[in-house]
């Protein structure tokens, strides 16, 4: 059953992420129509839905790359207040660099392809103010290790690496600062099936060991099922159904969700 925003819950923790009524139009295209979501600390929210349903737009909004027309977005973190959509560019950049990590389907969006892999990770740390070279290198190496990147190749630029390796560099960059929120947009799409399984495996391990709060978008229902606690189904910019992952997959309520689940299983 979807959690309505003001419903009192038994659990005393507050949601980490609260987005309400987020709408966004690109000219005549209404990409998001009043999308709301709540994510509790340590939870993984999976987002599924047909192509063009607004999943990536919503994720970009959560990463403050996109300013919606209406709606609010709050993160329950020390020193973070108010509607984050109201922040200026500088404050957004600082918040994203230090508290939010993102992995894109396309590594070109997340990485500088001609810098070294360790340099890509270290760049994140530089933005957060770290200047000591030895610390930068050490932290970058540890993030790459946690992402199960073969660190003997950490000085190679991503352009020379396989797709699976590039995703690991993105992941290392995203987790280098131990973000409060990790956003993943089709992190395994476009990889060979065997490589997909390995990246998924790493994500699962990070999730189990670090309890990072995640929002993950994927067309692959298997990926969503493996990683998510809760699932949100989007269609034409709207949320048509959300609930516990096992419930949405085993007992889908909405006609569209039934079609999606039965077509893909």
């Amino acid at each position: 059953m979807s959690l309505t925003m003001d419903e009192p819950t038994l659990v005393t923790t507050r949601p980490l992420l609260t987005a309400r009524d987020v709408s966004k139009a690109y000219g005549p295209v209404q990409a998001l129509r009043g999308v709301s979501a709540t994510v509790y600390p340590g939870e993984v929210l999976g987002i599924v839905g047909e192509s063009g349903s607004g999943k990536s737009t919503f994720l970009r909004a959560l990463n403050l790359e996109e300013t919606p027309d209406t709606g609010s977005y709050t993160l329950d973190l020390p020193d973070v207040q108010g509607n984050l959509f109201d922040l200026d560019r500088y404050a957004r950049r600082m918040l994203c660099a230090t508290r939010i990590g993102i992995v894109y389907q396309n590594p070109h969006l997340g990485l500088l392809m001609s810098h070294s892999s360790s340099g890509n990770v270290a760049e994140r740390l530089l933005v957060a103010g770290e200047r000591r070279f030895a610390v930068l290198r050490d932290k970058a190496q540890r993030a790459l290790e946690a992402s199960e990147f073969p660190t003997e190749r950490m000085d190679a630029p991503p352009a020379e690496l396989s797709g699976g390796m590039q995703q690991r560099v993105q992941l290392a960059k995203a987790i280098a600062l131990e973000p409060a929120l990790l956003l993943l947009d089709e992190p395994t799409t476009g990889l060979d099936v065997s490589v997909q399984a390995l990246v998924l495996d790493t994500l699962k391990r990070l999730q189990q060991e670090r309890r990072i709060t995640m929002v993950i978008v994927s067309h692959d229902l298997g990926v969503i099922r493996t990683l998510s606690d809760r699932v949100m189904v989007m269609r034409r910019g709207e949320v048509v159904e959300q609930g516990l992952a096992d419930q949405v997959f085993q007992d889908p309520q909405h006609a569209y969700t039934q079609q999606l689940v039965h077509a893909k299983l």
Binding site: M1, L3, T9, L10, V11, D229, R230, G243, L244
Partner: peptide, 20 residues
């Protein structure tokens, strides 16, 4: 009937179900 009181599992928030 749980340690935190009585909750209707048919209607409880997802986060509570996960916790239970």
């Amino acid at each position: 009937h749980g340690p935190e009181g009585v909750i209707d599992l048919a209607r409880a928030a997802d986060v509570d179900v996960t916790y239970l």
